[in-house]
């Protein structure tokens, strides 16, 4: 059988494609095996453990100062940039008027002081998070303890999660945030432009045995605990008080409860 130059080049091309493709697949697969084999990573013994972390925010105990303290400490320890342009703002925890946080409860006869009362809002760490469902790279995922985490290393910046989140809890780095971080916390990284970020429930503190920073400075207005544990403080409060969650009809099952 004779082959002409055209056929020869075709065969060469297909051969090279299969060769390189196969080789890189082998690389990927063999790398996976090695990763599975090594078990050198451990949790610190004092790390906080739970089946599902939750928060109860008591609006009666929240005042302007506590809210500002929570925002200040969170944004400081996580190197959240202070971009003032509302278009590009990055918010992990922030305050918003009651009528905007719970728009479906808006009522014309509701007392003004409730309607316009500021409420702390943050990522709801939903039990059924739409952002995790839509993420094409598992850059946002749910940890075993219910925390909805962000892996900023993996995020491709498609912003599907921002369209998916019904709570507006996600922020995108529209530009390099570094110059907008006033004082850098040397123990925590920053982010780069083009990735999405949000509240991570202070995973870095929980994994070292500390509660989230906002809980610590809230003077008891925010209670944090394992909602699957019937003896936890969170459960005790929920058992004896009327608590609400944001947009419950969407079925996302937020882990943040509000006491009125």
């Amino acid at each position: 059988m004779r082959i002409d130059r055209r056929q020869f080049l075709k065969i060469l091309g297909i051969g090279a494609f299969i060769g390189v493709g196969g080789w890189s697949m082998f690389e990927v697969v063999s790398k996976r095996e090695i990763e599975a084999f090594v078990e050198r990573y451990k949790k610190v013994p004092e790390a906080l453990q739970a089946k599902r972390w939750a928060m109860v925010i008591d609006l009666k105990k929240l005042d302007e100062k506590i809210m500002n303290d929570c925002i200040e400490i969170c944004h400081r320890i996580h190197n959240v940039p202070a971009l003032l342009n509302p278009k590009e703002e990055i918010k992990w925890i922030w305050k918003e008027k009651f009528k905007y946080v719970f728009p479906e409860m808006k009522d014309e006869y509701m007392p003004e002081e409730i309607k316009n009362k500021y409420v702390l809002v943050l990522c709801n760490h939903c039990e059924n998070p739409p952002c995790v469902r839509v993420c094409p790279t598992k850059a946002t995922f749910k940890r075993k303890d219910g925390i909805v985490m962000m892996d900023m290393h993996r995020c491709i910046g498609c912003r599907f999660c921002m369209a998916g989140c019904p709570y507006g809890a996600r922020s995108f780095n529209w530009r390099d945030p570094r110059q907008y971080v006033k004082e850098e916390n040397k123990e925590f990284p920053l982010r780069m432009k083009g990735v999405v970020e949000k509240c991570t429930f202070c995973y870095e503190r929980i994994d070292r045995g500390l509660p989230p920073a906002c809980v610590e400075v809230s003077k008891g207005a925010i209670v944090f605990g394992d909602i699957t544990d019937p003896n936890s403080e969170v459960r005790k409060i929920l058992a004896s008080n009327f608590a609400i969650r944001r947009k419950p009809k969407l079925g996302t099952k937020p882990s943040i409860y509000y006491l009125l």
Partner: peptide, 8 residues
């Protein structure tokens, strides 16, 4: 549209 196109 991607923020991190190198990671596509």
């Amino acid at each position: 549209d991607l923020g991190q196109p190198m990671r596509v």
